[in-house]
């Protein structure tokens, strides 16, 4: 079974480019489906820890999307930062506020029709305009972007935004300590 799988993977690089495209589309469909389902589950589940785990699936799916788009560095960063750090932070947040939720009123606000309406509105407007503008535009990326390229760009063209981000992170760090600190 495993050898079969490996053989298949080995075979991948001998594929014709059209076959690669088919494979990519298949992967896209699977990942996209999983992502959308997990996202829906996440926003509707009652159990908040489960929600966090569904979020992990969505984030991992997004990383897969990045790889399909040839952005490997972003994919790695996504996994490192999101799944590695932010989710852990969320789990801590959940843990520290555990038991805060009585079931008497439920996890959701009473009138959620408005929210559904807004969500559908967003999807309609966004997809409508996407389809209108790009219809069957193909992605014709020749080679994936390399980490070196990204590094060069960040440290030359985007150096000032980069510094600004680092200051922002510092400010957020100090800010969150100040906010969460217990006042004497």
């Amino acid at each position: 079974m495993v050898s079969l799988f490996v053989a298949q993977i080995r075979g991948l690089d001998q594929l014709e480019s059209s076959e690669v495209l088919v494979a990519q589309n298949v992967f896209f469909a699977i990942i996209a489906l999983v992502m959308v389902l997990a996202a829906l589950k996440m926003v509707t589940t009652e159990n908040i820890v489960h929600a966090a785990l569904y979020l992990v699936i969505v984030l991992a799916g997004a990383a897969g999307m990045f790889i399909l788009l040839g952005a490997e560095f972003i994919a790695v960063t996504q996994i490192l930062v999101y799944i590695g750090a932010i989710i852990v932070l969320f789990l801590f947040g959940i843990m520290l506020t555990k038991g805060s939720f009585g079931t008497e009123e439920g996890e959701f606000i009473e009138k959620s029709q408005m929210a559904v309406l807004v969500a559908v509105l967003i999807v309609t407007v966004a997809s409508g305009s996407f389809i209108d503008s790009f219809r069957y535009t193909e992605l014709s990326r020749e080679a994936p972007s390399t980490t070196a390229e990204i590094g060069d760009t960040i440290f030359s063209q985007f150096i000032i935004p980069f510094e600004a981000i680092s200051v922002l992170l510092l400010a957020a760090l100090i800010g969150s300590v100040v906010i969460a600190r217990r006042d004497q």
Binding site: L21, Q24, M42, V43, V116, V118, A126, S127, T137, E138
Partner: peptide, 21 residues
């Protein structure tokens, strides 16, 4: 692959996120 595949996927995820918020 089409560009729109990704754009629509992101639109769907966005709206799900908005629903959650």
């Amino acid at each position: 692959m089409l560009l729109n595949q990704f754009l629509i996927l992101s639109a769907v995820l966005f709206s799900i996120g908005v629903y959650g918020v």
